[in-house]
Amino acid sequence: MSTLGIDHLGLTTANLPATRDFFRDVLGWRETGSDPGYPMIVMTDGHARLTLWARRGNGAFDRHANAGLHHLCLAMQSEEALGAAYARAQAMAGVEPEFAPEPNKNGPAIHTMLREPGGCRIELRYTPPKDTA
């Protein structure tokens, strides 16, 4: 293979400050860079890196009609961390939950899907480690 994984993922958002606040306040990510003239903000959780871009214009992304990112799925450390992040997301203005944490299909993974204030669909998912005993 010639690739080493994803260096970063770029998300275009309708509300750059609100999307930054979602990643920072709901998920605990930190800002590592920005360019107000572009405008863009770089965020990380220490493992993954996202570049958040301000959308120009007002055309909405339709996940059924447009090519592009359907959603971003983030792995959570535990079921408790997933529940706590969901509670913080519900308390944040502009977040639109699609469904509360529930088993993904027949489990054992638990997940939730929501739209952050800038309009991007985010899945939060916890998959318990496989029992190796």
Rank of each mutant, 00 (worst) to 15 (best):
I6P: 14
D7H: 15
H8D: 06
G10H: 07
G10M: 11
L11C: 14
L11W: 01
T12K: 01
T12G: 01
T12Y: 02
T13I: 08
T13K: 01
A14T: 11
N15P: 07
N15F: 05
N15E: 12
N15G: 07
L16A: 03
P17F: 00
P17R: 04
F22Y: 13
F22D: 02
F23Y: 15
F23H: 00
F23L: 07
F23D: 00
F23G: 00
D25H: 09
D25V: 09
V26F: 02
V26A: 06
L27W: 03
L27P: 11
W29D: 11
W29H: 03
R30C: 03
E31R: 13
T32W: 01
T32G: 10
G33Q: 06
G33K: 07
S34D: 12
D35S: 13
Y38D: 11
P39G: 13
M40P: 06
M40W: 11
I41T: 15
V42H: 02
T44H: 12
T44W: 07
D45V: 05
G46R: 08
G46Q: 08
G46S: 10
R49S: 13
R49H: 12
L50A: 13
T51A: 08
T51N: 13
T51L: 13
L52K: 01
W53S: 03
W53A: 00
W53K: 02
W53P: 01
A54R: 15
A54C: 07
R55D: 00
R55V: 00
G57L: 04
A60W: 00
A60D: 05
F61P: 01
R63H: 09
R63V: 12
R63Y: 06
R63Q: 09
R63E: 14
H64M: 06
H64V: 03
A65V: 14
N66S: 11
G68F: 04
G68A: 05
L69A: 11
H70Q: 02
H71T: 04
H71N: 07
L72Q: 11
L72K: 08
L72S: 12
C73M: 10
C73L: 03
L74H: 11
A75Y: 01
A75P: 13
M76W: 00
M76D: 06
Q77W: 00
E79T: 03
E80R: 15
L82R: 09
L82G: 09
G83D: 04
A84H: 07
A85M: 08
Y86V: 10
Y86M: 12
Y86S: 05
Y86Q: 06
A87M: 05
R88T: 05
A89F: 06
A89G: 12
A89K: 04
A89N: 05
A91V: 04
A91R: 07
M92F: 12
A93W: 04
A93S: 15
P97R: 14
E98C: 10
F99C: 07
A100W: 12
A100C: 10
P101D: 10
E102Y: 10
N104K: 10
K105C: 04
K105F: 13
N106L: 04
N106Q: 13
A109K: 05
I110Y: 13
H111E: 02
T112H: 05
T112V: 09
M113F: 14
L114Q: 09
R115K: 12
R115N: 06
R115Q: 09
E116Q: 10
P117A: 03
G118K: 05
G118E: 04
C120I: 09
C120R: 00
R121P: 07
E123R: 14
